[in-house]
Each structure stands twice: as structure tokens, then as C-alpha cells.
Design a protein around this nucleic acid. Structure first.
Lengths: 112, 112
DNA sequence: CTGTCATTCAAGTGATTGCTTGAATGAAGC
DNA sequence: GCTTCATTCAAGCAATCACTTGAATGACAG
């Protein structure tokens, strides 16, 4: 149906440790490509490409300040990713609770 | 450094819509490969491979019942994925709160 | 206008992904 | 034992990924 769901890109973006590092770093404040590249053993071109992936997932937006292009973390897709996971977990736990209730009931009957 | 972080596999597993479908379905209860394959326009071999990816991420475990191998959703990696995201978001919101406080203070000074 | 700094674009490569088809395993029923 | 059903294994293929190097853009400083 929907060929490229937004969540596809968000989770794909988060699947890479370098990109998760970048997200963590950006959660502490905006940063330029070269700043983001510094702690990594990669070319800044590689970092630039990672940022493009994060941008495609909507996790990062960019502005133009002089000759730099600072990266800014966007919270919305982060929240959507959390929501999906929490929904799945909630269904899971609710089912487990019902199962437990049922087992308790059966146990009760057996005990009579 | 750490070549294959557990989160890599979890988020990579969630990056595919078919696999997210499978997770949702399993959150409602265990199911066999053929049951999981039915609603999809894919061969059951493809579904089997998707399950293997979910298994690699620790999201799914399997048992042996007769000649079927029912899939069971595991909550722990789901929780870890949520934790990571919430940590990132928390740092982000805390920083924003500090920034707001700072701006309010500046505004107050300017108003004097 | 020229050089420099921050960044992107472009092309190439080896590894991985998502899918297919066809053959192999393995338990259950006759 | 042979057949059937559920599933995996194996090979192949096109597409995408993560990374590299080298060339291009584009703002600012002299």
C-alpha cells in the first residue's frame, strides 16, 4: 500500500550507530557537519551523507548561517517512533494481563 | 568500536513495514509462519526470512509445537528501543527548557 | 578577483537487503 | 515405509547502503 512510510525512514535512520551518535549529540544542541564529523573516524563527506539520511527521516533540519549549515534535531519523528513502539508494547501487555486473569480464573475453578 | 550493537538490529528490524506488521500481529498473540504470511502478497519463504531478522534483533522467539514453529513477541528489545528514544528526547526537551528559561531571563532584563 | 573554508555533488566499490524459485529437512498420518 | 504439511536452506539477482576519493559550489576575507 504505502510504499515509503515515514516510519521506514525514521527507524532506518536510527539503525546506524554513527547516526544515533549524531542524534545524541544534536539533542544537546545544534552543530555543523565538521563539528559532528570530528569525533568519528570517517570523512566529513560520509557524515554529510549520514545527515542526509537523518534529514530524509525528518529527524534533522538545517539552516544557513554564514558558510556553515548547522543541523537541528526535530522532535516530532522521534515522538512518532516512540508512539508506534509504545502502542505495540501496550497491546502486548494488555493481552498478557488478560491471559493472566484467565489463568487466575482457571486456577480458582480448579482449586474449588 | 562495538561493531554490532543490539539496537542496530532492533531498529533495522523495525525499518521494514512488513516486519512492523508482523510485530503488531504478534503483539495480539503467537502465530505460525503460514499464519503470518497469509495477509501478505509475499511467499512464505520471504516471511520466514523477515522473521529471522526479527529473531536476530531479539524481538521474536520461537518454540516447536508439533510440526509448526510458532513465533512469540519478546518485550525486552521493544523496551530498550523505547528507552533509547526517550533518553534522546529527554535531553532535547531539557535543553529546550533551559533555553526558554534563559530567554525569559533576558527578556526580563531588557524590560527593565 | 583570488584564495580559503564549509559543504555538497558525483562516481565507483564491496557488502547487505529483499525478494524469488527450487531443493532439503522433519514431524504426523496412513 | 511413503506422503503430506510446515518450515528452512541455498542460490541467484536487482536494488540499496556505507564508504571512499576527487571535483564543484558558495560564502567570506584579503
Amino acid at each position: 500500500m504505502s510504499s515509503t512510510d515515514a516510519l521506514d525512514l525514521v527507524y532506518a535512520a536510527l539503525a546506524d550507530p554513527t547516526r544515533r551518535d549524531i542524534v545524541i549529540r544534536l539533542s544537546r544542541g545544534d552543530a555543523t557537519v565538521t563539528e559532528l564529523a570530528e569525533p568519528h573516524d570517517l570523512t566529513f563527506q560520509a557524515i554529510s551523507q549520514h545527515i542526509k539520511v537523518l534529514e530524509a527521516g525528518g529527524l534533522v533540519s538545517r539552516s544557513r548561517v554564514g558558510r556553515t549549515r548547522p543541523c537541528h534535531l526535530e522532535a516530532t519523528p522521534l515522538g512518532e517512533a516512540i508512539s508506534w513502539l509504545e502502542d505495540a508494547r501496550q497491546v502486548w501487555t494488555e493481552r498478557l494481563d488478560r491471559l493472566e486473569t484467565y489463568l487466575d480464573a482457571s486456577q480458582g475453578e480448579r482449586d474449588v
